[in-house]
């Protein structure tokens, strides 16, 4: 019969249409909120999602995985007196590895000796060239540059970020990437402990 295939297809659409409402009712019966909750969004991103699939940004937001990367930022540690101690030592690896070469670093030189000091005088990222590849964060040996999760950075003019605009506290970093942060902190502590032990051993040997 001509039209059978079309009707068969329409039955699929019809089922999909109803799924939204049957799901709504089943969530209601279970006393759970389907919309505007983390649970609801998580369910809509899972294999069991049925019916409505929309995540209503900006009211609801997708749950971003830890590894998600958008644009880079520089991590600073908060010093004792609230001073921002930027982790970057201006070693230049990120600028070298950056594929579109959008990172610009001015290294600080000690005015007295002329020798380099491990702090950047300035740091630029041309956000309108950056290709969000994450190489800078991946190859930074000091965990100083990381990829951000914040996507709401559209603006009315072009975006060239300088040191001031790039800096974000370590606590923010710990918030968006808890697992990475813990792992790196542990590695750093282990390294420092090893260094201290070595120094102690060296001192003992000298004595």
């Amino acid at each position: 019969m001509y039209g059978k295939g079309i009707l068969k297809g329409l039955s699929v659409t019809w089922k999909r249409f109803w799924d939204t409402y049957t799901e709504d009712i089943s969530w209601m019966l279970r006393g759970k909120k389907r919309y505007n909750t983390v649970e609801g969004v998580a369910h809509r991103s899972s294999k069991d999602t049925k019916g409505i699939f929309t995540v209503q940004y900006p009211e609801e937001q997708l749950i971003v995985p830890e590894e998600f990367r958008y644009v880079p930022f520089l991590v600073f540690d908060e010093g004792a007196d609230g001073k921002k101690e930027v982790r970057c030592t201006s070693c230049g690896i990120c600028a070298k590895v950056c594929p579109p070469q959008c990172i610009w670093i001015v290294r600080t030189n000690d005015p007295a000796t002329g020798r380099p000091v491990p702090v950047p005088t300035d740091f630029f990222v041309d956000m309108d060239i950056c290709m969000n590849c994450g190489f800078c964060a991946e190859y930074c040996p000091f965990d100083a540059i990381k990829m951000d999760h914040d996507i709401n950075i559209a603006s009315y003019q072009r975006n060239i970020y300088n040191l001031e605009k790039l800096m974000k506290p370590a606590s923010y970093y710990a918030g968006i990437r808890p697992e990475n942060y813990t792992r790196e902190e542990e590695a750093r502590k282990a390294k420092e402990a090893a260094k201290a032990a070595k120094a102690e051993a060296g001192a003992a040997a000298a004595a």
Binding site: Y70, C130, I153, S155
Partner: peptide, 27 residues
């Protein structure tokens, strides 16, 4: 494109995720 056309909103990202695009359109 701003060399030729007057751009109203710039959305960074390569590519911006759909949510970032919507954030830009809200701008």
């Amino acid at each position: 494109i701003d060399k030729f056309l007057p751009v109203d909103v710039y959305i960074p990202g390569c590519p911006p995720t759909p949510q970032a695009l919507i954030a830009g359109l809200i701008k």
